[in-house]
Write a protein that binds this DNA or RNA. Structure first.
Length: 103
DNA sequence: TGTGTGACGATCG
DNA sequence: GCGATCGCCACAC
């Protein structure tokens, strides 16, 4: 496990309830500005919901990852809404209000 | 050791 | 506005 991966998990765990972050932002905070892809791949290979709230990580435009689905995107959306995340009419996260930038 | 692949994202035509 | 392409790098084979 590299430092980058470790950082990614640390950052994801820092996202508070009612907030989300993007792959790009996490990649940037982890020191790899153009490696958003690696963030996704890393989370994919280390899907550990117990300690890593991957459902709080979304695309830059606020949409959810298609390949994520641990029961369906409806489930993921339900979880986020339950945590207080605001969704737009497009079914995307309201990045203006819920984007976490406190890294 | 080398190659292919992938929860992304920006850029180009 | 949209599809194609490239860059990024960890990991499986």
């Amino acid at each position: 496990m590299s430092v980058f991966c470790d950082t990614v998990f640390a950052l994801v765990r820092k996202i508070p309830c009612g907030f989300v972050s993007t792959y790009g932002d996490i990649a940037f905070a982890a020191g790899r500005p153009r490696s958003a892809r690696i963030v996704g791949y890393t989370l994919h290979r280390n899907d550990d919901p117990e300690t890593t709230p991957c459902h709080r990580v979304v695309f830059k435009d606020g949409s959810l990852a298609d390949g994520y689905v641990f029961g369906g995107k409806d489930v993921q959306r339900g979880i986020l809404e339950k945590e207080g995340v605001v969704f737009t009419q497009d079914g995307k996260v309201d990045m203006e209000k819920c984007r976490f930038l406190g890294f």
